Amino acid sequence: MKLIYDNYLNEIHSFDSYYGEIVIESDSLTIPYINLGVSEHPLNEGKDLKFINKAYMVFEDVVSFDEQFSLDEYKGTLTLYFGGYNLKEREHKEFKVVCNRAYLNLLEESEMSHKMWVPINTPNLKSNMDKEDVQNFLLSRN
């Protein structure tokens, strides 16, 4: 399986996803995600979402990262909107990343499913992932 996808980034959906601590190194950001959705993408060419259990979104040569943002676009850069449920702060957040390069980084053990991956119990959904596996993923540094 290919592990890096740097195209069709607007077809990666994070609204129903969960993420761990955002790792900032120099001018790049790495975000560990659980349950990223993809459709009309090389990973899933269909219109129905499929969900990835564990993956990283990597943003390089970051110009700005904002939780309070306008919908302005910047010429010559990528402007991407991501977010999800922040597992550490226990709240849903959205943010805008302006950068020169971004990609989805899968792991060798990444899996896709039509069902959602749920790392914690929520009022509406029960966790369907191993707690220790989730913790190990969120603590690893890609």
Rank of each mutant, 00 (worst) to 15 (best):
K2Y: 02
K2L: 06
K2D: 03
K2E: 08
I4Q: 09
I4G: 10
I4S: 08
Y5P: 01
L9S: 10
N10D: 15
I12Q: 02
I12K: 01
I12V: 14
H13Q: 10
F15E: 12
F15R: 11
S17C: 08
Y19D: 04
G20L: 03
E21D: 14
E21H: 06
I22H: 07
D27I: 01
D27L: 01
S28P: 07
S28Q: 11
I34H: 02
N35V: 04
L36E: 01
L36D: 00
G37D: 07
S39L: 05
S39E: 04
H41F: 02
N44G: 02
N44D: 05
E45M: 08
E45N: 11
E45V: 13
D48V: 07
D48R: 03
F51M: 00
N53L: 00
K54V: 04
A55C: 15
A55G: 09
M57Q: 11
V58P: 05
V62T: 07
V63L: 05
F65K: 03
F65W: 12
S70Q: 09
L71R: 08
Y74S: 02
G76I: 13
G76W: 08
T77G: 00
L78Y: 11
T79P: 02
L80H: 05
Y81K: 09
Y81W: 10
F82Q: 12
G83W: 03
G84C: 11
Y85K: 05
N86P: 15
L87Q: 09
R90M: 11
H92V: 15
K93Q: 14
K96M: 13
V97D: 07
R101T: 14
Y103V: 05
L106W: 01
E108A: 13
E111V: 12
M112G: 01
M116K: 13
V118P: 04
P119D: 12
I120K: 04
T122N: 02
P123Q: 11
S127L: 09
N128F: 02
E132M: 08
D133T: 14
Q135N: 12
F137M: 04
L138D: 06
L138G: 07
L138R: 10
L139Q: 15
R141T: 15
